[in-house]
Amino acid sequence: MIGLPGHSAGSIAVHVPVADAVFVGDGLTTRPVLTGEHGPAPAPFTDDPGQALASLERLSGIEARWVLPGHGTPWSVGVPEAVRRVRVSAEAG
């Protein structure tokens, strides 16, 4: 388990190497309900957006292909790219 506080105090991610995947719960989304866009972005309705974004850095070194969010479709371009896109989206938003 990897702690991802920010969205909520107990948010976590679970890396499953045999599945080449990281389950991120609400650590990020691939379909923000407020915009309807597709692709990795910060999860809306987050308790502490700054902390949530900082927490994602804990995932940036994981080389899993699949990112499985609690909301949105699975992302198959890899964890580092998902984290990068969330950062870009947060800076633009």
Rank of each mutant, 00 (worst) to 15 (best):
M1D: 10
M1I: 11
M1V: 15
I2N: 03
G3R: 15
G3D: 15
G3I: 12
L4R: 03
P5Y: 02
P5I: 00
P5F: 06
H7S: 05
H7I: 03
H7N: 09
S8I: 09
S8W: 12
A9T: 01
A9R: 05
A9P: 03
G10T: 04
G10H: 00
S11C: 15
H15N: 06
H15E: 08
H15D: 10
H15Y: 13
V16C: 07
P17T: 13
P17C: 15
V18P: 13
A21C: 10
A21M: 03
F23M: 00
V24I: 01
V24W: 02
G25F: 12
G25L: 08
G25K: 09
G25V: 10
D26I: 04
G27V: 00
G27Y: 03
G27K: 00
L28V: 05
T29L: 02
T30D: 00
R31M: 08
R31G: 12
R31Q: 10
V33H: 13
V33Q: 11
V33L: 13
L34D: 11
T35L: 06
E37L: 11
H38L: 09
G39Q: 06
P40L: 07
P40G: 07
P40M: 07
P40S: 14
P40A: 13
A41F: 11
A41K: 01
A41V: 04
P42M: 07
P44Y: 01
P44F: 06
F45R: 06
D47M: 05
D48W: 13
G50F: 14
A52Y: 11
A52I: 08
L53T: 08
S55R: 13
L56R: 12
L56W: 12
E57P: 00
R58M: 01
R58V: 00
L59I: 05
S60T: 03
S60C: 08
S60W: 07
G61S: 07
I62S: 13
I62C: 08
A64M: 03
R65K: 11
R65N: 12
W66N: 06
V67K: 10
L68Y: 13
L68V: 14
L68P: 07
H71V: 14
H71S: 13
G72N: 02
V77P: 05
V77L: 15
V77F: 15
G78T: 09
G78I: 03
P80F: 09
E81P: 04
A82M: 10
R84Y: 14
R85N: 09
V86P: 04
V86Y: 12
R87K: 15
E91I: 00
G93W: 03
